[in-house]
Amino acid sequence: MSPRLEGRGISVRFGGLLALDRVDLEVADGAILGLIGPNGAGKTTCFGVLSGLVRPQSGQVLMDGHDVTGASPQRRARAGLARTFQRLEVFSGLTVREHLVVAYRSRGRNVATRIALDCLGAGRRPFSGEDEAIETILDRLGLTKLAAAPAGALPLGTGRLVELGRALATRPRVLLLDEPSSGLDADETAALTELLRSLQAELDLSLVLVEHNVDMVLGLAHRVTVLDFGQVIADGTPAEVRASEAVQTAYLGAAP
């Protein structure tokens, strides 16, 4: 069976800089993949390619074995791909709850019905099952009390949770998280780790995790891919990666 998400030989060039150099990676069903590497290694760029925001110069992206390299971010989202951003991308004019509503409704009605409903004033009535789904997510993330707060005014850590909630509301099968623990303290990070572990199991998610917190990744992930200067320098189980010499010198050596 083909993996849920797969990148084959992805290369991205920004001017003279080769940000990604023939990167391969693979996310199996219900697995957690850690993607680590020093600053500027190309992790965020890699997420950009996987989610369709960055066009690779060469290489392929496949979802469930189908080639989606040329597909728009929207099509990939509808196929079950969701992500969060390293640099927060919350909608500052919307409340926390509205973030989830927009995401939940993105697989909605066709345009004509929508225009008609919008004009007649029926456009904001909840979809069936919407309210329960959103309450559940808010509850899981501890955002229920902040549901009506405008998201633009929230602190960084809460903003990350809002992005996570927004991603979950699209009912994804693959979830890409870009440094979810940055801006959180040690307790919050521990809580987040537990949350991700349980969410992954419950929702049968495939998770890809970009993290600078190496202990968190090695503890959580089933497999780890290590990038350095745009190249994959190691790929294996957390134990193998921890033992790998290339990783030691390039990365872990600096932060034991």
Partner: peptide, 11 residues
């Protein structure tokens, strides 16, 4: 606020 984020939730 963010066209990128909107795109990645499928809108």
């Amino acid at each position: 606020s963010s066209e990128q984020a909107v795109a990645t939730i499928g809108v």
